[in-house]
Each structure stands twice: as structure tokens, then as C-alpha cells.
Write a protein that binds this DNA or RNA. Sequence first.
RNA 1: GGGCCCAUAGCUUAGUUUGGCUGGAGCACCCGGCUGAUAACCGGGAGGUCGUCGGUUCAAAUCCGACUGGGCCCA
Length: 988
Amino acid sequence: MAVDSEHVGAPAPVAIHERVLAYWERTGVPSAVVEGSPVGPTFRFTEGPPTANGAPHIGHLISRILKDTELRYRRMRGERIVSSMAGWDCHGLPVELEVEKRHGLKSKKEIEAFGVERFCDECRHSVLEVASVWREMSRRLGYWLDYDHAYRTMDPPFIESVWWSLKTLFDRGLLEKGHYVLPYCPRCETPLSSHEVAQGYHDTTDPSVVVRFPLEGAEGPPRDLLVWTTTPWTLPANLLVAARADLEYSVVRTEADREAVLASVAVPRFFPADTAVVERLRGRDLAGRTYSPPFETPGPGPGRYRVVLDDSVTTDDGTGFVHVAPSFGPDDQRIGAREKVGVFDPLDSRGAFTDLVPLVRGKSFKTADPILLQDLAARGLLFASGSLRHTYPFCWRCDSALLYRAIDSWFVRTSRATDRLVRYNASVHWVPEHLRDGRFGNFLTEAKDWALSRNRYWGTPLPIWLCDHGHATCVGSFAELAERLGGPLPTPFDPHRVTVDRLAIRCATCGAPARREPYTIDGWYDSGSAPFAQFHYPFAPGPFDPAGALDFIAEGLDQTRGWFYSLLVIATLVFDRPAYRACLTNGMVLDESGRKMSKSKGNAVEPLSLLARFGADPVRWTFLSVDFTEPMRIGEATVQKTAARTLGTLANVVAFHLENARADRLAPVAERPSPDRRLDRWLLSRLEGTRADVERSLDSIDLSAGATAVRAFVDDLSTWYVRRSRSRFWADVGSPDRRAAHATLSYVLLGLARSIAPLLPFTAEWVHQEVGELGYEDGAASVHRTPWPSSLAAREPELEQGMAELRALVEVGRELRHRAEVKSRIPLAEFVVFGPPASALSLLGEEGVALLAEELNVKRVSRADGDQRGRYPDRDWVVREEGGVALAALPRKPTAELLEEGLVREVARRLQQTRKDLGLRYTEPVAVTVGAPPALRAAIERRRATLAHDLLADPFDVVEGPLRAEEGVRNWELDGISFSARVVPRSR
RNA sequence: GGGCCCAUAGCUUAGUUUGGCUGGAGCACCCGGCUGAUAACCGGGAGGUCGUCGGUUCAAAUCCGACUGGGCCCA
């Protein structure tokens, strides 16, 4: 039968992937282990819920790989994962936007015409659809969570928990209403929080104009204040001009009978060098002077249109005068409030001008710019006009230009807890570490109040009702709502806007009827509540511990202002403790040429196609092999290359082992062997070192260190242990050395499988099943149900050191052979090792000498002292020297006898190859006839007994000259000598 | 304008915390070898101003400063 001698070969990674995935799913492995040990120590974790508004992209793979790796390790350690629930972030603008697109809705008006109830239903369904795509990706990636009991931020129990926490904040005076300038999206018609704005800055071109503000009541020629702005649309809302008290201003002549005022340092920016300065004065000299505003607006209040002083005025750019529109800027609002001039906001909720500014009535703020400028120019008020390229905030979801405007909003008063936020953050183990005091820490010290309310539909409703006396009532549970309502809630109760907006309750302060504040809350508050709200805390019993911070979270770096922040704020303000102990972040995934991936550029790599093409482990290994804390360049070619290396090599070693073990019917060895051979002990020691490295790496969530250790071990295993042990694997099956080699390799592969199970779950399972001969039958026998090994073998550092030195000697020997131009197949008489490196030989003893001799194909390894260099003249020896000291020497030429031996060995290999080509078993006897020229024939004859034995050849005939060409005869040429042979199986 | 991070061979990277032997490795490339792991394995070669400049030091990829390029964040 030819089958036995066919190579098993290593299956492609994707085939391994499919086989293992099918086994897990058939036998229910993931659900059996996902929670870890029910009785083990708690490992607190929360899945950062992806916003279910679109299909996952490749950037979503990396954080899942990191999370899964750590969780697998914790499970093997016997810990209990609290919680292993998957989660979906269901609320918020992203979801609404998706539904708006689907139904072609362009504004809140259209949503209301569409029907808010129907709109919210659509949002709900959209979320459920998208979640199934994510679940499929996770399944193929092997990201094991409890998807059947996923938490959803839109579920009533989740919302009730969020309400509970909001009430807690409210009772502590940390949730308040205010009227402040906030970033505002005119398309979404809602304010955004600063961390949302942070996600949407990009470059844009705006007008850059200088406008004349004519001063009133002065003698002499008319004087204009020159005011610089990049937002002409705010000019109709102008109420004041700010100057700085101590700043020097110059009055310059612009035309024959007209003068302009601006900061002296700004004069060269706008006027030629020879411009005459009429007068110099200080900002304070101008205070109180009135001017005529650029646009007439109805009902000017008292105190408007005058010059005021403020330190926020800078001269870095502009003219030293700042136009103040209190409704459209934080500084403006502050100055306006101080000067008690009120506000004037001529924009409607969609950012379009109202009747208050007839000139641009109905125009959105941005499109009004040119019209306003044209009008100013016509009236001679436009002094200079240009454009400016700068960064400007845009809506992170719909990409509309934002505007800053004063608006009613509810705030979480994070600014009152800055010191605690900073302190709790200081205890976090950040990876990379610099985030703690760097980007994240800086953000905390500057933290502003969190603008929580959103003027939207699909979100957790803000549970606050107001009565006509202005008392606010915050409702912290459904039961409390029913109580204040004075009757039962509708059943089933869905606590979203459509329902709760209709519920009028009694004010908690005065008992008067109260109406709900018509807001939803920032979706980031929902996800930040996930650690407790997923358990319906405090309404239902569960494993959530209010005093316990999460042990581990991992997400992309973009979450610093998002989830990492909202988790910390809520944990600090509600539970007065840190939110998490360790936070692992990853950078952005770029394409192979370093560009951002985007669907529009067409360079995006689909996670599912990547997984389908390569399987999960090559993808996982790729991400673990790069520096994932920085931006990564990843594409199909990267995965192919990275994966082929370690995974391909390991698969080959396993295939090699299986082939030998099966041929000899040797059972796998799972008990720790205690071999005599140093090579075996060396491998066991290296295995234990690798196991310990992976353990250290996963304990300290420094995942790539583990991957580096595994890569190095697989390399050693393949390129040294297996290579150096090959002949042992085809020794007689009864021999102790054959047994020892088998025991060592099978034990090492099984131990390796357990050690890499967290990093390479599919490959580990494959090795575990194949080498362990488990047959993918029993789910309980999965490698992922084995405990993490605390020790696999004895560590022998000196042995490892000695082996490293020995391998360095091999390299020296190879180099010498290369220089002597003697091929490896020709044996040489001697390899001489001088001086200190010989310590490798003493550490490894006779075995080391034998290894060296075998690897270098020399008959003898000898040792010499350095001063014996003279015994090895350059005429006969090639010598490796370093710094004038001899290291090793090799004869320049083989003896005639050794040359002949090499040649015959070559013949033997050709004949063995022929056996293999014929598909013969190693044990099948053959009849061989060799035809060779006289010299070679004589050489073969001298060694015929050995050859016949090795080839299982009987009869073994050697004749002179080439054989006649007939069936089964093959011809070869060896260094100019040709010979032919015929090999025939005896059984045929 | 401010803050944080990154920079080692064509590519992916080890080494940087704690300064010290000729800065390791893999892929790709060239040459050669091996042939019961074969889309594997082994050797040799070529390829590094360790981003640039300066400083500290007996000694700097490593520590300090500035700069350049890239990324992220803030205003």
C-alpha cells in the first residue's frame, strides 16, 4: 500500500480553522467555558459595547483579539469572568442617523412627520439586525462571550439602572441644568459633549475678514475699530467689542478723511510700513466708547454696542479687537453675562436665520456668510477680506459643521470631582503606560462639565420632570415613577420617549403637575453604566460589587474620550472608586501603505473576508506580532507573511511528529518525561521558559511579549530540535532513544498547545486534538478546558546557555566549510575547537561533541589550546580567528576515503529517493541493480553490506557501465560521474 | 498655538525601563547546500549614519536637549 508512505503534510491554516470551529460548535465548547470557573476568584471585565449602527471593520478585530487572549488565560487560570456578557450600545445619534438614511429623513421635522414612535421602532430593529453581523464576526474570530445573554442599553432593566445612577447624581447635586455655550450640530439639532466634538476636528477653509465698526461721538474724521473674524455669520448677533486694557493701539489714516484703530503690533499685518500713525493709546482709553453695529437688529438693549475690556483678547492674529456675540462663544457668553447685555440669538434650531435678520432670513449660518459680506462691502464696512485654512469641529457622525451656541442643557458636574478623577486614574495600569499621565491624565485635569442632555429621540430619556415653579424631580426607578404618577405604568412598560413624554407626574417638592424635560441622554453615559446596568443593579441580585473596579478592559485608543472617560466619571461620582484597574489600548489599523482605511477609498479590508481567507489564528497572530499600541499597517499580504512563519513552521513540526508517531503506532505521552539526552532536556527547559514568558506577559497584559517568546520557541523547536533529532525518529521503534525522542516531542507539543491556547486558540486546539489523538469528539477534552500549566518542566539555564554556544560553534564550522569549499555531504576528518568556546562542549559532554560532529559531518571533534595554533598550518587547514585568537579549524580537503564515502552516501540517497518515488513503505524489501563506472563501482562494492542493509535491498547487484534503458531504470550524474540503477519491489 | 506618542535593514521586529562584548532575528533578495517536514529545512552573502544635530559619559540605539518626519489628542 502506497498510502502509508505518503506524507500527511501540514494542513492549511484555514483548514485547521474550519475543522476546529466545527468541533467547538458541535460539542458546545464555547458556552461551556465562557464564564470561567463558577467557583474561582473573580476577574471583573466588561465588554465595551460596540455601537450597533454598521458592520464591523478591521479596527474592531484588534481589540477583540486582545480581550479574548486575556480572558482565555484567566479562564485557564480557573478564574470566574464577571461578566462574560456580550453587549450592544443601542442608543444615540449613530443609530438614529442610520435609520434617517434608510428612510431619507433629513431633519427633526421630517422625523416627527414620520412619527417618533415608528422612528424609535426602526432604530430598535436596526440595532438587532446589525448585532447579528457582529456576532458572526466574533464567532469566526473565536471571540468567546455570552452572546445569548448580551446586555442591550435599550432594554428597560438597563435603562432603569441608568436612571438609578442619574438619581444618585441628582441627589448629590451633581446633575444640574444650565444655559451655556456648547458645540451644537445644526443637522442633528442637538448639542454635543466635548468628547464627542473631539472626534470630529478637521481642516476647512473659512472666510477671514476685517470689518469696520465705526466709533460714535468722536470729533474729527470718522474712526473705525478694525475687527477680525472668521465667522461673519455671528456679526448680526454682535453686542460688544472687547479690547485689552494694557494693550497699545494705534490710530492710522486709511483714507483722506478716515481713520482706523487697531493694536499697534497688528499694524504691519494690514498696512504698508510707511503708514502714518496719528495717535497711540491704550485699550483702557477706549473702554465705554460706543460704535454702530455692523447690522441693525431689533430692540438693542441697554449697554450694548460699546467697547469693553477683557484679558482673553490676544494679538497672535487679528487686530486686537474681538467682536462679542454672547450667544455664540464661551468667552463671548462670559463677557456678555458680566456686562449684563443679555443674549441675542437670531438662529433657529436648524442653524438658519429667523425673521430677526431679514437680510438672510431662512439661510443657514454658513450660507449666510457671503450675503452678509456682500452687504458689508456695499456699505463700505468691509476693510479686508480673505480666507483661512484651519481646523474646525464637525459633527462626529453626520459631518456637519458645528457651531458654538448658548443652549439649555443638563450637565453632570464633573468639574467638581476633578481631584478624585485624577486620583482614581492614577491607580490605573495603563498600557501603554504614558496614557495615564499623558493624554488621558491631561484631559482629566482640564475636564469640563459633561453636557449630558440631547435634543433627540432614540436614547435613554432623561428622568427629570419640571413643574411650573421650576422644581426638578428626578425619578430613580420605575416603581418611583408609578408612585409619582399615582397609578400603574403602562404594560408592557417601555421607558423610551414616546411613553414617558406622556406621563405627567406630581412634583416631589410641591406636588404640582410636572412635565418631563424632553431630552435623551448622551449614549456614552449608557455604555459607561454597563458594568452595573448589565446586571440591573441595584434592582436585581447579581454579581456586581459596587466596591469592585473592573480588573481589565481593552479597547481602541479612540475610547480615551469616550468609554474610558464615561466609565471613570460614573465610577467616581456614583461609586467613589476607580472604574478599572488595567486598561489596554490599541492604535488605529491602517492599510499596507500607511493610509487610513475607508470604504470610499476602497482600501478597507473586510474582517469577514480576512477571516474566511486565512482563518482566525493567522489574523490573531498578525495583530499580536506588531506593535498594536501604535498605528499598524495591516493587509492581506501582512497576514499571509506573518502567519506563514510561526504557524506554518509549527504545523510542519506537528505533521512531522504525527507521521512518525502514526507509522510506529506510538501513543502520545502526556506525562512529564525525564530523558537522559541533553537535547531533550534542553527542549523541555526551553518549553518551560516559553510557558513562563507567556504567563508573565498575560499577567502583566503585555501581550506581544508572549507572542515574541512563542515565535522564538517554535523556531528553536523546528530548526534545532527536530532537525538535530530527525534520525532518532526513524530509529528502531523499540529503542530507548526512539522512545525518548517521541516522548519528548509529543509532551512538548501538548505542553505548547496549552501554553499558546490563549494566543492561538485554533492552532492550540488542533495540536491538542491531533497530537493527543482525541479525534475532535469530546467537548470536555478541548484544550480550552484544561487548566493553565503552572510548570511544564525543569528549567536548566546552564544547559540553554551551553546549547546557544554550541550553535554558535556550528555556525563557525559552516563558515569554515564554506571557505574550504567542501560540501556538507563530504565528511571531513576533524573539527578543532580552540580555547574558551569549548565550554559548550563541557556543558553538553559527549552528546555535545556528537551533535557538533553530526551537524558538521566530521568524523571527530577535538579540542586544542590556543597556543597550539601552529599545529594547524593554513596550507592544510582553514582557521577561524577573532582578534588574533584561533576559535576553530577544519581541514581544507577530505581524504580520498572520506571523499569516496561521501560519494557512496550520495548514491544511497538517490536510491532512497527512488524508493520514496515508488511509494514504498520504509519496511518493504526491494531488488536493486546499480550500473556505475569502475571507480564508483569499486567504492560501492566496498560498502555493499551497509548499503544493502540501509536500502533493504536483496539482491543488491552492482555492475559496470550504465544499465540499458528499460522500464524502472533511472540515471543520475554526481559531480561528473554518471550512474544508473533499477529498483524493483520484491513483492511485485 | 498647546499636549502625548512613535522613528532600528526594502518589510515585520528584538534590544531602550537599569548606558558596556562585533545592534540580534524572520520575510524578501543573491549564492550555495540538503532531500523519509518538501508551497519545508540548512549555510553563506549583501543590506543598518539605530530619523537629524548637539550634549552628558571612559563608553549612547539606550540618558538629556533641540530639530525633522509621522500619528493621535486638545484649543
